[in-house]
Amino acid sequence: MSSLLDSRGFEIVARQDFSDVTYLLEVRHPLMAKAARAGQFVIVMLDDHGERIPLTIADFDRERGTITLVIQAVGKTTREMQDVCRVGTFLHALAGPMGEPSHIGGQHRVVCVGGGLGVAPIFPQARAYKEAGAHVTAVVGFRTKDLVFWEDKFRACCDEVIVCTDDGSVGIKGNVTEGLRQAIAAHPDVDEVVAIGPPIMMKACAETTRPHKIKTVVSLNPIMVDGTGMCGGCRVKIGDGIKFACVDGPDFDAHQVDFDDLMVRLKRFAATEKAALAKYEESCRMGREPAA
């Protein structure tokens, strides 16, 4: 229990930079490493003035007692984390694993689709499907060849890996829906598709599989505060009902999700967020010594 009582917070034990916006943090939390399952996420606070942001558990290592986060710097908090999180520094808060684990088991042939933010989060799912005995095809999308990461990890646990790039510099040229289409064409008996990424991508995947009536699961990423079902900020429209993504999800049946509603809700604080990032960048420019 003592690791939980470390007043300094949660120690970062490894960091890797995949590109100028994507980075990996491995954080020590033995209990969480033990508990985490595919599909779950954490809530992080960088420091005591920070906001609470959700991040998917992209990997966990029970032996090392760590969990791995893969983060895209898109705004103030994720940019600041990119700037200040180093090996040996601490996150102020780290709570989880949160959310219902993905329902894995019983599937025969599965396609796991990850694009943008979703490439890392789809990894534990792909691995879990494989461990549960399914044939797994991974479809992962990047902008260009230089931004590709974790291809080796996917190859190690999947039967097939289809890489897609926007510019065609490696793999299929086009976005992940193109890869998904090819995977379905090659394996008409696919019985489940899982897609994680920006809402627009998940929506496109849902539309790709709908005519084939293939069960499709997406992991939704609405704005969260507590992650425990207490604020209702993360509510999403599923079929005729309202669900709280943090406790009822984050996985939902893609064919029931109102993605347009989700996309509008993700812009709730757009103006404030833009201003916060601009202010942060300004303060960096003012305060920073020329790079050594």
């Binding site: 906001e51 505060v225 207490m230 900020g233 509008v264 809700r265 812009k267 916060a276």
Partner: peptide
């Protein structure tokens, strides 16, 4: 119900009280 200007009191109060969003220098919107 799910318009962007609609939120629960719990969300408003948590942002304001616990996350101190009302105070300068805190990141929560």
């Amino acid at each position: 119900d799910s318009l962007n200007g609609v939120l629960s009191a719990n969300e408003l109060l948590t942002r304001c009280n616990m996350m101190q969003a009302k105070d300068e220098g805190f990141d929560t919107p």
